[in-house]
């Protein structure tokens, strides 16, 4: 008689925690992606002097938000995979991610407004 392989039990709370941590990491990725998008925009596609622009059709801030939200979604999916493979290591990296997020957005805000 063959023995059935028993999967480790994952409760609803564990699933919820996994989802919450993935989304939290994704939220951090949103801010990092926003900073990165602004840097790329400033270096590759520099915007004209605002003193010479009276009216605009598209607001760059909204586009950056939309793009970084999309990247944040991808980041949440990536974080979910990471939490499934190596939960201990991924969790240990979280506090550093909070600092990295604050640092990235601050540096971008100061250097490339």
């Amino acid at each position: 008689m063959s023995e059935r392989k028993v999967e480790p039990t994952r409760t609803r709370a564990t699933h919820l925690a996994h989802l919450a941590l993935s989304l939290a990491a994704g939220a951090c990725v949103v801010a990092i992606a926003y900073a990165f998008t602004r840097l790329v925009q400033a270096w590759v596609y520099p915007s004209p002097d605002p003193r010479t622009v009276t009216h605009v059709a598209h607001v760059a801030f909204y586009w950056r938000l939309a793009q970084s939200a999309w990247v944040g979604g991808l980041g949440a999916i990536g974080a979910s995979a990471l939490f499934a493979r190596a939960p201990e290591r991924a969790e240990r990296a979280l506090p550093a991610l909070a600092l990295a997020t604050a640092l990235a957005i601050t540096l971008q805000g100061v250097l490339v407004p």
Binding site: A27, A31, T101, I105, T106
Partner: peptide, 10 residues
Amino acid sequence: VGVLALAVAG
């Protein structure tokens, strides 16, 4: 953007 992202994460 950083304020909101970090608050949501926390």
